[in-house]
């Protein structure tokens, strides 16, 4: 009789997952993702690229907000910092893209330490407002410091050759984003299994208690800010390759709220949740947009004219409903379903 899942050797203990089934389905998923450009049209591919980039950003935010419990409303500012770093380094300083992309991670991480230092004394709402303030300051700087950032005129990126591959081609960009996402996922999953990750969770659960247990709040909070923003900066850098023409208007408050919606819907503190949430938030408006096209003309036209508003409405409703009905998000639904099946007929 099965009494539980016993781990009896160190290699099994170190493995990310010791379940053959999980590895099998992950392999199937990876195969499907690799095959996607061969079968899909350009629209689906564009959508997939958006999901991949959003997932990288959501994993980054999740590391800070979900795992360490530091609420950040400043994601649009950090994304903007990453995006502009890559864009400006390539366009104005002729840096090779191979160096510009990692640099965007480092610059954003350095900026985030600036926010991180006040965070050492701030909690909850005050921190949320401070991060919001920082993101305003960053976008305002980008808009007004014209000699450095081209101000309102935006930045055009011509050179997108990454190790001999031109990322202007959607297929190439897709595989590149996929690779970044896989690397980031593996990185964060492993961080969360180390001393650092456990310290993050301790800070989230109760920072004063964590401090009493010997977790150095200064070091670990700043690490969380740095690591999270490094990843968000990378996502910003990828956005530069995606748009190839960047402008401050992209980085509105709504973007930061969308990012929060992704990790709330997916499930706070879970890497898989962040990826699922990103996919959900990107796909939902598209599906609803298609559904609206099926409506009678009069209603459909009103809603089609306000596509942006319909999207906002959906994101707001999704946030409200998730928090009200299933605070653990989609990953919580998945866990419950899994438990229901594995414990049947004793499940509740």
């Amino acid at each position: 009789m099965r009494t539980g899942n016993h781990i009896e050797s160190y290699p099994r203990h170190i493995a990310l997952s010791d379940s053959v089934v999980v590895w099998f389905w992950l392999a199937v998923l990876m195969m499907a993702l690799i095959m996607l450009p061969a079968v899909s049209g350009l629209f689906v591919l564009g959508l997939a690229i958006r999901i991949l980039i959003a997932a990288v950003g959501a994993i980054g935010l999740n590391l800070l907000t979900g795992s360490t419990g530091q609420i950040s409303l400043g994601q649009s500012g950090f994304l903007a910092a990453g995006c502009y770093t890559t864009g400006l380094l390539i366009a104005d300083y002729n840096w090779p893209p191979e160096l510009a992309l990692p640099m965007s991670g480092f610059v954003t991480a350095a900026l985030s330490l600036l926010v991180g230092i006040p965070s050492l004394r701030l909690k909850g709402l005050y921190l949320a407002i401070t991060t919001l303030a920082f993101s305003f300051i960053i976008t305002q700087f980008l808009l007004f410091a014209e000699p450095i950032t081209h101000g309102p005129y935006g930045v055009r990126i011509e050179n997108t050759t990454f190790f001999g591959v031109d990322l202007a081609r959607p297929t190439a960009l897709y595989y590149f984003c996929l690779a970044v996402l896989v690397l980031v996922t593996l990185g964060v999953l492993n961080i969360m299994r180390t001393r650092v990750g456990r310290a993050f969770n301790a800070i989230r659960d109760h920072d004063i208690a964590a401090r009493a247990m010997g977790v150095n709040l200064t070091i670990y909070k700043l690490t969380a800010f740095g690591a999270s923003s490094f990843i968000v900066g990378l996502a910003g850098g990828l956005m530069a390759f995606q748009f190839r023409f960047i402008n401050v208007d992209i980085f509105s408050v709504t973007l930061a709220i969308e990012a929060l919606a992704m990790i709330i819907v997916g499930g706070l503190g879970s890497v898989a949740g962040a990826i699922i949430g990103a996919a959900f938030i990107i796909i939902l408006p598209e599906v609803v947009g298609d559904a609206i096209a099926l409506l009678p003309d009069a209603v459909g036209e009103v809603l089609a004219n306000g596509a942006l508003e319909v999207k906002g409405l959906l994101i707001g409703l999704v946030i409200i409903l998730t928090l009200r009905l299933e605070p653990d998000g989609l990953i919580g639904v998945w866990r419950n379903t899994k438990r229901y099946w594995s414990r049947w007929p004793l499940s509740v």
Partner: peptide, 26 residues
Amino acid sequence: MSGQPIFAIVMVTIGVAIVLRSLTIL
């Protein structure tokens, strides 16, 4: 949402914000 953590309620107000804004403009 009463009885839920403050974090969740504040997130709900963010959701309400974007819903109200979109409805008004629609």
